[in-house]
């Protein structure tokens, strides 16, 4: 058996502004500077793959894995186009993408690799890689965030990532590209005055960060639905579900909150989680667990249902 494993995971912001225009806001500058600490940790690790789940890459047909070995293009943010374009040249681990696809299919998920010249890789992934892996020393992988998937499907996608990591022998850093509270200001603001959209969002973010700082990732995963309801969590906090699931659904981590700042009203945090033994105490389970995806529950459909496998 190969010794593929997850070395650690980081939650990073979904917005490009700390990467594109840090000088415009003390909050963005702070995040920009804090990325350097995360980068140093990743560089000191033995990682040979950075695997990203990004809430900014939305998919409909199941789950897409980026598999263009050398994407070379640019992307312009839909809102923040006046801050310029993000030109990129990345190194993607195409073999791992294929393995991940196969492992996802083996767990009943719809999955496919994509490799097309000019494919618009999402601004969240590009920003994270520019800040954390600017010279492409470590290969990257990116998986999409299905718009219809809920917790069960996302857990299965996380478990498939764990299967693929084991099978491929890669030593992996996981990145969850996601905001905490994801309520943006809907008008132009002075970036100098950026703040979390509401006190309530801020309080919920801080509660989540308190738990993450204690390494209690699975507790945060269990809390995600409530957090999303209360604080407009980013995409139901699927990035947390995916990370927690891919790492084995425990609270046994050393947690580090590197930074927490507003980006255009959203809660933007840099959090690190390193596996460590028996730090997080017992688990509080409110949510169900699942190992296999059996398709969308379209009970009103008169059409043929997806075949149910064991």
């Amino acid at each position: 058996m190969s010794d593929g494993r997850v070395l650690g995971a980081y939650l990073v912001p979904n917005q490009p502004l700390p990467c594109m225009a840090p000088e415009q806001s003390p909050a963005w500058q702070s995040l920009h500077d804090s990325y350097a600490k995360v980068r140093a940790e990743i560089e000191a690790s033995e990682a040979d793959l950075i695997l990203i789940f990004s809430t900014r890459w939305v998919s409909i047909i199941g789950h897409q894995m980026q598999a263009d070995p050398e994407p070379d293009f640019w992307v312009v943010d839909e809102d923040f186009h006046q801050f310029g374009s993000l030109h990129y040249k990345l190194r993607i681990d195409a073999d791992f993408a294929a393995t991940y696809r196969d492992c996802a299919k083996a767990r009943g998920l719809e999955a496919r690799t994509v490799a097309y010249q000019g494919f618009p890789i999402d601004v969240g992934s590009i920003s994270a890689l520019k800040m954390l892996n600017p010279d492409n020393r470590i290969a990257a992988g990116i998986v999409s965030c299905n718009v219809y998937s809920d917790r069960a499907e996302t857990l299965v996608l996380g478990k498939a990532a764990a299967d693929a990591i084991k099978q491929s022998g890669r030593k992996v850093i996981l990145l969850g590209v996601s905001a905490l509270s994801n309520r943006m200001f809907t008008e132009w603001i002075d970036p100098q005055q950026d703040r979390i959209h509401s006190l309530k969002d801020d309080e919920w973010n801080r509660k989540l960060l308190e738990l993450l700082g204690e390494g209690r990732l699975e507790d945060v995963s269990q809390l995600s639905r409530e957090f999303s309801r209360q604080a407009n969590g980013d995409s139901k906090m699927k990035a947390i579900w995916w990370m927690a699931s891919a790492m084995g659904q425990t609270n046994d981590y050393r947690g580090t909150v590197f930074d927490y700042q507003p980006v255009w009203g959203t809660g933007a945090a840099l959090v690190g989680l390193t596996p460590a033994k028996n730090l997080g105490g017992g688990l509080e389970y409110d949510e169900d667990d699942t190992d296999f995806f059996r398709g969308d529950r379209n009970v009103l459909s008169t059409a043929k249902q997806k075949e149910v496998k064991p």
């Binding site: 890459w57 939305v58 409909i60 047909i61 994509v114 097309y116 618009p120 999402d122």
Partner: peptide, 9 residues
């Protein structure tokens, strides 16, 4: 070139 991120195929 506009590649659809959802249906790039």
């Amino acid at each position: 070139l506009s590649v659809d991120p959802i249906f790039p195929n």
